[in-house]
Design a protein around this nucleic acid. Structure first.
Lengths: 166, 166
DNA sequence: ACCCTTGATTTGACTCATTCAAGAAAAGCG
DNA sequence: CGCTTTTCTTGAATGAGTCAAATCAAGGGT
C-alpha cells in the first residue's frame, strides 16, 4: 500500500518519510478530511506524529500538487488526494458532509466569467450548497453561513444555533 | 444617506441603531470589505464602535439577508450589501482583490451538478481565481492557496469563454 | 556500508479572526 | 415618560493554523 506513494513523492522531489506515507494513506482512506482528523487517522500508522508535522506534510503535498486543499466557508480546511481533474464539491449546510462532483467540462477553468474585470482567470471553483440525504429528513438547521437564511426568510423562521461541531 | 437604511432595517425586524447605520454605510462604500476594514471605516461615522459590535451587526445583517458573507479560501471573511441576485466573484490570488461577476442565469442555484449524490442543492457558489490587472504585470507571486502551481505547469489550457455560465 | 549534507520533523510558543458572556445602554411600544 | 427587550460594550476565550529553533533522518557521495 505504502509502496504506491513512494515513487510519487520522489517524482515530486520530496523525500519518502514515514509521516508523509501515513498522511497519504490517511488521505486515501478519508477523501475529505480536515487536519485534525488526519492527525488521528495517521496516528494509526505512525502513533507519534505531531499535528504540526501533519500541517507540514499537507502543505508540502499541496505545494507539489499531490494533494488539494478545499476550504468551505465556515469549516476548517479539507484535503483530498484527487487532483488534476478540476472536480467540484457538494457541501451539506447541516452536517458539513462533502461529496465530489465531476466537472463536465474537464480542464480548468471550466467556466469563464462574461466580464473578467481585467482579471486573468485560471480556475473556477464551484461549491454546491445544500442538504445531504441524511440531513434532509432530520429537520436539522443549517449551520453553515450562506444563502440558507435568505432561502428561508419567506417563512419568517427564526432558528437557533445547532451543534454541528466536528 | 442614512435614511435609506432605516426602513430596510425595520422591514427586516431590526432596530435602527447608530452602529448598524455606520456599518451599512461602510459596506456601501466598500463593496468587499473584511470585518477589520469595516471597523475602521465605520468609526468615521461612529468613533466609539467596537469590533465586537461590528461582528454582531454583520451577523444580524447576514441573518436577515441585508448583507452577504463571502469567505474566499485563505482570507478573512468579506461582506457585501449586494444581495438577492446570486452573483459570483473574481478573486486575485496575489493581492486578494475581489470583483463581482454577474450571474447570467439569475436565480439560485444557477448551476446544477450532474450527479447530486442525494443532496438537495439550493445554491451554487462560484469563485473565479486569477490575477487582477494590477498584479499581472507586477510579477507578484500567488499567495493564496489554490491550483496556481499546478495550473502553471500545464499552461495553455485556456478555454474560450463559455459565457458567464455561472 | 558509512558519513554527511540537506530536508523533514518535533516541540513549544504564538498570531489572527472570530466567538462567548455579563453588564450597561438605548430603541421603541404603550 | 417609563418599561421591556434588543443591542452594544467590555473583557476574555476559542480554535485553526503558523513561525522558529533544535533535533532527527533520507539518501547521495565516498
Amino acid at each position: 500500500m505504502e509502496t504506491t506513494w513512494a515513487p510519487r513523492l520522489r517524482d515530486a522531489g520530496l523525500r519518502v518519510t514515514r509521516p508523509r506515507l501515513a498522511v497519504l494513506d490517511a488521505l486515501a482512506g478519508h477523501p475529505h478530511a480536515d487536519a485534525d482528523t488526519l492527525v488521528t487517522v495517521a496516528r494509526q500508522a505512525h502513533p507519534t506524529i505531531s499535528p504540526q508535522a501533519v500541517y507540514g506534510v499537507l502543505k508540502a503535498l499541496v505545494a507539489v500538487g499531490l494533494a488539494r486543499r478545499v476550504e468551505p466557508a465556515g469549516a476548517p480546511a479539507l484535503y483530498e488526494v484527487r487532483v488534476g481533474d478540476n472536480h467540484h464539491h457538494l457541501v451539506c449546510r447541516s452536517c458539513g458532509a462533502v461529496a465530489d462532483v465531476d466537472c463536465t467540462v474537464g480542464a480548468a477553468p471550466c467556466l469563464s466569467p462574461s466580464d473578467t474585470s481585467g482579471f486573468v482567470v485560471d480556475e473556477a471553483e464551484v461549491v454546491f450548497w445544500g442538504l445531504c440525504a441524511d440531513c434532509q429528513g432530520a429537520g436539522r438547521p443549517a449551520v453553515v453561513p450562506g444563502a440558507s437564511d435568505r432561502v428561508r426568510q419567506q417563512a419568517g423562521q427564526q432558528h437557533t444555533r445547532g451543534g454541528a461541531g466536528a
